[in-house]
Each structure stands twice: as C-alpha cells, then as structure tokens.
Amino acid sequence: MSVPGNINTAPPPSSFDDDPDFYEESRWNKLRRRIVEEPLIPLGCALTCWALYEATRSIRTGDKERTNRMFRRRIYAQGFTLAAMFVGSIYWEGDRKKRKEFSGLVDEKKKKEKHEAWIRELEIRDQEEEELRRVRDRVREGQAKAREKVVEKAEGTAKQVNEKANEVNEKAKGVASEAVKAKDKAVEKVQESVRSSLEDSERRGPILSAAADLWQGRR
C-alpha cells in the first residue's frame, strides 16, 4: 500500500540486503573449503606447475636430460592430481550428497526467513503509512478548526465594528438634530430681538429713535 504524497519511495524491502545470512556461500569460502577437504589436488597442481617451470628453465639452459626428467615429473604430477580427484570424488560422494541436501534445506529455510522478513517489514511500513495518514488527518482537522475560529473571530469583529458604526451614526444624527434645534432657537431669538426692537422703536417715536441711533453711532 502507498499513501498519496508519501515521501517514502524506497523499494521494499531494503533492510536485509546487506545481511550475509540471506545469501549463498561465496566462491572464496567454497574454494577454501574444497582445499581443506581435498588438499592433494592443489598439491598435485602445484607439483605440475613446478615441473613445467623447471622444464622451461632447463630448455633455456640447454640441459636436455633435466628437461626430459622434468617433463616426466610433470606427467607424474598430473597423474597424481587426477588420481587425487578421482579418489576424492569417491570418498566425498556421500558427504557431498548430504551437503547438497543440507544446502538445499538451508537455502529453503533462508528463503522462507527472508520472505517472512519481507512480510514483517511490509507490515511495519503499512503501520507507518497508516500512522502518517492519521497524523495528516489530525493536522488537516486542526487547520480546519483554526480556519473556522479565525472566520468566527473575523465575523465577530465585523459585527462589533458595524454596531459601533451604527452607534456613531445614531450619535451623529442626534448631534445634527440638536444643532438644527439650536439653530432654530437662535433664529427665533434673533427674530424676537428684531421684533422687540421694532416695537420699541415704534413706541419711542421717531425723535427718540433718531437720538438712540445717534447715540449708538457715537459708541
């Protein structure tokens, strides 16, 4: 299984690739084991190589007798090696069959263990991906709740601002109406004062009004 957006793209499994228990016997280990089991074969090969080397040296020096002797020794060494291989194959035949059967069982067991290990690792990866999915879901839920809180807070702030604006508008309307009333009162007072002045001037007569005007002009 894979989760969308998962960053884990490694090919499963990978934890057992470096484990030597999951692989067959190496060539070097096999060669070393065969040398220990049949030491006469490498000895015969070494003698053959030594005889050929000495024959080559004797050919260069021109010693024909030593050359013939070395060639005969090379034939003996080769025969000894073949005999060792034949005897060793007969001697180790039963053991090799048992080893082959044992190797087959071991390989089958290792394959089974490796398969089970792969399954365990896949299960662990599935659990990790499920945990990541739950974490992502929790994060998304937290983000959604945070957005809802921010929206609610913004709506509350906007409502308060609207209420304050309405209050200010009401106060402004009240102040405007009071200003209009005050203006009307001032106009009425001015009209009353003008009216009273006219009435006084009419009662005092033209002489008194002229004197009053002269007096006011002097002031």
Results as ranks from 00 to 15, higher is better:
2 S>G: 02
7 I>N: 09
13 P>F: 00
17 D>G: 15
20 P>M: 01
20 P>Y: 00
21 D>K: 11
22 F>R: 05
23 Y>A: 13
25 E>L: 05
27 R>G: 09
31 L>C: 05
31 L>M: 12
32 R>V: 06
35 I>L: 04
38 E>H: 03
39 P>E: 05
39 P>I: 03
42 P>Q: 02
43 L>Y: 08
51 A>W: 02
52 L>R: 07
53 Y>Q: 05
55 A>F: 04
55 A>C: 03
57 R>D: 10
57 R>Q: 14
57 R>A: 12
61 T>Q: 10
62 G>N: 02
62 G>T: 02
65 E>N: 07
68 N>A: 15
69 R>E: 12
71 F>V: 13
71 F>G: 02
74 R>S: 14
77 A>C: 03
80 F>E: 04
81 T>M: 15
82 L>H: 08
82 L>C: 07
85 M>D: 03
86 F>Y: 12
89 S>F: 11
90 I>K: 12
90 I>Q: 14
93 E>L: 14
96 R>W: 11
97 K>R: 14
98 K>Q: 08
102 F>Q: 15
103 S>V: 08
107 D>C: 05
108 E>S: 11
109 K>M: 05
109 K>V: 06
110 K>W: 04
111 K>T: 06
111 K>Q: 14
113 E>F: 01
115 H>A: 15
117 A>P: 03
118 W>R: 13
118 W>Y: 08
123 E>S: 10
129 E>N: 06
132 L>V: 03
136 R>M: 03
139 V>F: 06
139 V>H: 09
140 R>D: 12
143 Q>P: 02
143 Q>N: 11
144 A>G: 01
145 K>E: 09
145 K>D: 06
148 E>L: 12
149 K>S: 07
150 V>E: 15
150 V>D: 15
154 A>I: 04
155 E>H: 07
157 T>Y: 15
158 A>C: 01
159 K>R: 14
162 N>M: 10
166 N>H: 08
167 E>G: 03
167 E>R: 11
170 E>S: 07
172 A>G: 00
175 V>I: 15
177 S>L: 14
177 S>C: 02
181 K>E: 13
181 K>L: 10
182 A>N: 15
183 K>S: 13
185 K>I: 14
186 A>Y: 03
187 V>I: 15
188 E>P: 01
188 E>L: 09
192 E>L: 09
195 R>G: 07
196 S>M: 09
197 S>F: 09
202 E>S: 06
203 R>N: 10
206 P>R: 00
206 P>C: 00
208 L>R: 12
209 S>Q: 03
209 S>F: 00
216 Q>I: 04
217 G>E: 08
